[in-house]
């Protein structure tokens, strides 16, 4: 590959990411957060946002505009390194699936290592925080950011063992091809896929659900100092994007994805419809998780860690051993 073509590829990546960010991610985020807030408000016997746009659809945008005039308080002990690393981890998380809708001929998760890629990105993002992120002296963050990042690292242990078991069992390392092997249509919610039943509800499934429903990395990427409007959107978007990414991962692997071109045709429009169906299913999964979360007491990191090391990790090991046998 010549340097010229590398530059073209890089620009194409940046361009597609920016297009995706402003014309797909932001509208989805605003619409989804409005829907989510309305549904939760209904569950909790209150009205919910209703001033920002029609029925509060633009409430997130209004919050952004309101808070753009305000600054986050400057923390006395916070140096520049703290927010640089959180920004890097945020960028890494955003890198996940970034080129999905724009380059359907080479989709991100059709690549040969796509089963591992999300995991690697999350491990990198957590490591950035654990190793380089700066803790602050006030009580709320002493046990905050690092603990959450460490929990994500813990979660990667059962996921890694489970994924390894899956790879050994099936000989496949592509996310979409594995999803296709389940034999379920993208228009169904076939969670009992025909292939690899032992992994259907293994540790990968449950750990993925934890990351989808209640990400322990909630505070990662919120150490920045600046305009509160930007910080709010950056934090919320990162959180949404992280949950959304795992929801897509789970949808393709467990909730019926089929493959691009199977039902909707192999044209560009067919690929687009296929992506839209996957996105809608992932969003529905997120909504379900949100409603479930609001009906329960908040889960603590200790409980998550207990679940990971006492149940999910042994389950992943059992899967790995069985697949080797």
């Amino acid at each position: 590959m010549t340097p010229h073509s590398l530059i073209i590829l890089f620009l194409e990546f940046i361009g597609s990411f920016l297009l995706f960010f402003f014309f797909a991610l932001l509208p989805i985020y605003f619409l989804f957060s409005a829907t989510e807030r309305k549904l939760v408000a209904d569950l909790q016997a209150r009205v919910g946002p209703h001033h920002g746009g029609a029925e509060g659809v633009l409430q997130g945008f209004y919050d952004f505009v309101k808070l753009i005039t305000k600054r986050t308080p400057q923390r006395s002990t916070g140096g520049s390194a703290s927010w640089i690393w959180s920004a890097i981890s945020t960028a890494l998380i955003f890198g996940f699936f970034a080129v999905l809708p724009m380059r359907m001929e080479q989709p991100y998760f059709q690549s040969d290592l796509s089963l591992f890629l999300p995991l690697i990105i999350f491990i990198l993002a957590s490591c950035a925080h654990v190793l380089f992120g700066q803790e602050f002296d006030d009580f709320s963050t002493v046990f905050g950011s690092h603990r959450r990042a460490t929990t994500v690292l813990s979660l990667s242990a059962p996921i890694l063992t489970s994924v390894l078991g899956l790879v050994i069992f099936t000989g496949e390392t592509s996310l979409v091809r594995l999803g296709t092997m389940q034999g379920a249509s993208p228009l169904s919610w076939n969670i009992f896929g025909s292939y690899g039943a032992i992994f259907q509800f293994g540790s990968l499934f449950w750990a993925g659900l934890i990351l989808t429903f209640q990400p322990p990395f909630e505070e990662i990427g919120f150490d920045g100092v600046g305009r509160r409007g930007f910080e709010l959107v950056r934090h919320d978007l990162t959180l949404f994007w992280a949950r959304f990414s795992w929801a897509i991962y789970l949808t393709i692997l467990y909730f019926g994805a089929g493959q691009p071109g199977e039902i909707f045709g192999t044209t560009g429009m067919g690929n687009f419809i296929w992506s839209a169906v996957i996105v809608i299913k992932a969003l529905l999964l997120l909504l379900l998780g949100k409603l479930l979360g609001k009906a329960l007491v908040q889960v603590r990191l200790e409980q998550v860690n207990h679940l990971i090391w006492k149940w999910l990790f042994p389950l992943g090991l059992v899967g790995l051993v069985l697949s080797v046998i």
Partner: peptide
């Protein structure tokens, strides 16, 4: 304090 928002709103109602 338990972050059980739904019950919180019900009780305040």
């Amino acid at each position: 304090i338990l972050r059980f928002e739904t019950a919180y709103h019900y009780i305040l109602r």
